[in-house]
Design a protein around this nucleic acid. Structure first.
Lengths: 131, 131
DNA sequence: CTTGAATCTGACATTGACGTCACATTCTAC
DNA sequence: GTAGAATGTGACGTCAATGTCAGATTCAAG
């Protein structure tokens, strides 16, 4: 598929998809004319990239990480280096902190929302991972 | 206390503390000479601000939110407006998504770390809110 | 072949929470 | 009072992901 379709299917802008390529996060074949041609697996990969971005990892970390993740089609293509491992451990701590802060902030929001609306709205109390 | 001490006690740079003030997140008395003089409660407040920043809220949202939070010394000073409430509900959804992504990303990190180190390191499997 | 849609590259702009530096002023200890 | 530390303001830089625009090229359909 080409970039427009991938953009539509992932909800990620074409600009970002091209950017991901420059960051080594995403690859594509090229048509003779130079247009990008993506494999179907690109959709999943973009979703994964987004996930990691949302989790606050930067491009370079994601780039290092991706080849170490087990792909839809098999085991990981690489094993993390010692250097990467220590980096990841740091990221993990940051993520833990962030989860902690998010949970507390969500609670704060709930308090404020409840206080203002008199009683809980629709689903304020189902606090687990609803999406 | 003055800005240097507050900075030390919170681990937040003086630059950031001044920035918070411009954003209406933090207030201070002034000495006759114009130096900021913070109340003790500022320490808590800064911590709260940090928490909300870490959770991905922007200054303006935090500014609206803070007066609606119940303070260490009593109930909330304000009640959220209807407009704010809908904004906060949106934030809440974002936070939920983010928590979800963080949890998944943490799992990914753990997989990679475990795969590379042969077996779990120190406490990789205690996945709940350790800080 | 032609035409309009899609894509290409490259450059510049944006956003938000800071870092950093310069220079002036105030505070604190002596 | 004076020196040195602390603080004040203001301006500019940064960083990363992404928006946006311009101009050129390619693709798909008639």
């Amino acid at each position: 598929m080409r970039i427009g379709e991938l953009s539509r299917r992932t909800g990620v802008s074409e600009r970002s998809l091209r950017y991901y390529e420059t960051q080594g996060l995403l690859t594509a074949e090229r048509t003779p004319g130079g247009h990008r041609e993506y494999a179907d697996s690109a959709v999943d990969r973009v979703a994964r990239i987004q996930e990691l971005y949302t989790a606050g990892l930067c491009s370079s970390k994601i780039a290092q990480l991706l080849p170490c993740m087990r792909d839809a089609d098999g085991g990981p293509a690489a094993t993390a280096s010692a250097r990467l491992i220590t980096d990841l451990a740091v990221e993990r701590e940051r993520i833990n902190r962030q989860i902690h802060d998010l949970l507390r902030s969500r609670d704060v929001l709930d308090e404020v929302i409840i206080a203002a609306s008199g009683r809980p709205r629709s689903s304020v109390n189902q606090s687990k991972d609803q999406r």
